[in-house]
C-alpha cells in the first residue's frame, strides 16, 4: 500500500504541469477573450468580441467548413479503418501482417510532412497525369474550392485510417472464437457473420473511434497549413487556422481567444453528445 505522502509525491509533478500548461493558460485565455489584446497591450471590452464573431462572415464560413469536413472525415475514416481491419484480420498470415504495417505507416509521418507530400502529389503528380493522359479534371486540385476540400479529406483519411484500424483490430480479435464458429456451423455467410455477430460486438470500438476522429478533425491544423494554407482564397481555411491567423497574422489576440473559447465549447458539446449516444447504443 502507498502511504499518503507517497501518493501525493507521485501525482504532484503531473498536477503541477497540468496546472501550469493547461489550467492557467486556459483561464488567462478566457480572460483575454474579453479584451482587445494584440499580444502586447490589452483593454477590457466586455462581450464585444463575441458579438462581432457572430457577424463575421469568415468565422462562420470556416466554422461551417470545419463542420462539413468533420462529418465527412468521421464517416470516411471509420469506414476505411473498419474495412482495413476486416481485411487484415481475415486470415493470419504474413501478407496480412505486412498490410497491417503498410496501412499504419501514414500515421507515423508527421502532419506537416504529410501535407507537403500530398501537396506534391496533388500539384505535380496530378498535373503530370493530366498532361500525359489528357484528363483535365486532374489539373490544379489545390487551386479549386471543391477539390481543395476533398484533397484535405483524402489526406486526413489516409493519415487516420491506419490508426483507427488498430482500434477495430483489437476489438475484432477480442470477439470470442466460439461465437464465430457457431455462426459458421449455423451456415451464416461472411456478410451475415459480419452484420449479426461482429458488428454488434464492435459497439465500444465505435464509441472510441468516433470520439477520436471527431475531436481530431475539429482540431485539424498542420495538415491544413501544409497542404493548402487556406487557399484558394481562404476557402479551405478551417477553424484552427482561422484562430491562428487572427491571433498571429492580424494580431487580434483577444478576438482569436474568443473564437477559441467558442471552438472549445462546440467540441466539448459535440463530444459529449456523441459519447452519450454511443454509450446508449452500446448498452442496447
Amino acid at each position: 500500500m502507498l502511504k499518503k505522502h507517497q501518493y501525493y509525491g507521485f501525482i504532484l509533478p503531473a498536477v503541477a504541469f497540468i496546472i501550469g500548461i493547461i489550467i492557467i493558460p486556459f483561464i488567462s485565455g478566457i480572460i483575454d477573450s474579453f479584451t482587445n489584446s494584440n499580444g502586447i497591450s490589452r483593454q477590457f471590452i466586455g462581450l464585444k468580441n463575441y458579438q462581432l464573431l457572430f457577424q463575421d462572415y469568415n468565422f462562420l464560413q470556416s466554422f461551417w467548413l470545419t463542420f462539413k469536413f468533420s462529418v465527412v472525415s468521421v464517416v470516411l475514416i471509420n469506414l476505411v479503418g473498419l474495412v482495413f481491419a476486416l481485411i487484415v484480420t481475415h486470415k493470419d498470415n504474413w501478407f496480412n501482417n505486412t498490410l497491417k504495417t503498410i496501412f499504419f505507416i501514414p500515421n507515423l509521418v508527421g502532419g506537416v510532412l504529410l501535407g507537403f507530400i500530398w501537396q506534391f502529389i496533388f500539384t505535380n503528380a496530378f498535373k503530370a497525369l493530366s498532361v500525359n493522359l489528357g484528363q483535365n479534371w486532374l489539373n490544379g486540385w489545390l487551386s479549386d474550392e471543391t477539390t481543395g476540400f476533398w484533397g484535405l479529406v483524402i489526406l486526413f483519411t489516409w493519415q487516420m485510417s491506419g490508426y483507427i484500424m488498430l482500434v477495430y483490430i483489437s476489438f475484432l480479435n477480442a470477439i470470442p472464437k466460439n461465437s464465430l464458429e457457431a455462426s459458421l456451423l449455423d451456415g451464416a455467410s461472411e456478410l451475415q457473420t459480419f452484420f449479426n455477430v461482429k458488428l454488434p460486438q464492435l459497439a465500444p470500438a465505435f464509441t472510441i473511434s468516433l470520439f477520436l476522429t471527431l475531436a481530431n478533425s475539429f482540431k485539424l491544423y498542420e495538415q491544413n497549413l501544409a497542404l493548402t494554407n487556406g487557399g484558394p482564397y481562404r476557402s479551405t481555411e478551417m477553424i484552427s487556422m482561422y484562430i491562428y491567423n487572427t491571433a498571429f497574422v492580424n494580431f487580434q489576440q483577444g478576438y482569436a481567444q474568443a473564437t477559441g473559447i467558442i471552438l472549445f465549447v462546440v467540441v466539448a458539446l459535440a463530444s459529449f453528445i456523441q459519447l452519450y449516444f454511443s454509450r446508449k447504443g452500446e448498452r442496447s
Binding site: 469568415n58 484558394p232 482564397y233 481562404r234 491567423n245 487572427t246 497574422v249 492580424n250 494580431f251 487580434q252
Partner: peptide
C-alpha cells in the same frame, strides 16, 4: 492593416 494582405485583398 495586419492581415489585410493574406486575408482580404489576396483572397479577393
Amino acid at each position: 492593416p495586419n492581415g489585410f494582405a493574406n486575408e482580404v485583398i489576396g483572397p479577393m
